[in-house]
């Protein structure tokens, strides 16, 4: 989880809105900190399905 959090550092501030990058740091810090205390209920959280496979 720390590896996933640390990879937010790889987003270039010159290329994306700062408010988004700050928001990403904030929730990942919270996720890791809380997880270290109590573990996670879900072992995996997000996926990106090809848009064409998703019924609208």
């Amino acid at each position: 989880m720390r590896m996933h959090r640390d990879s937010v550092n790889n987003i270039d501030h010159a290329l994306a809105p700062s408010e988004l990058i700050d928001a990403a740091h904030e929730c990942w810090n919270r996720a890791v900190q809380l997880g270290e205390q109590n573990g996670y209920r879900n072992a995996q959280a997000t996926v990106l399905a090809p848009t064409g496979t998703i019924a609208s």
Partner: peptide
């Protein structure tokens, strides 16, 4: 950025 926000928030809730 938006992928990180979605996943980070999900894991924060997961705990």
């Amino acid at each position: 950025s938006l992928t990180a926000i979605m996943t980070g928030e999900a894991y924060a809730l997961s705990r």
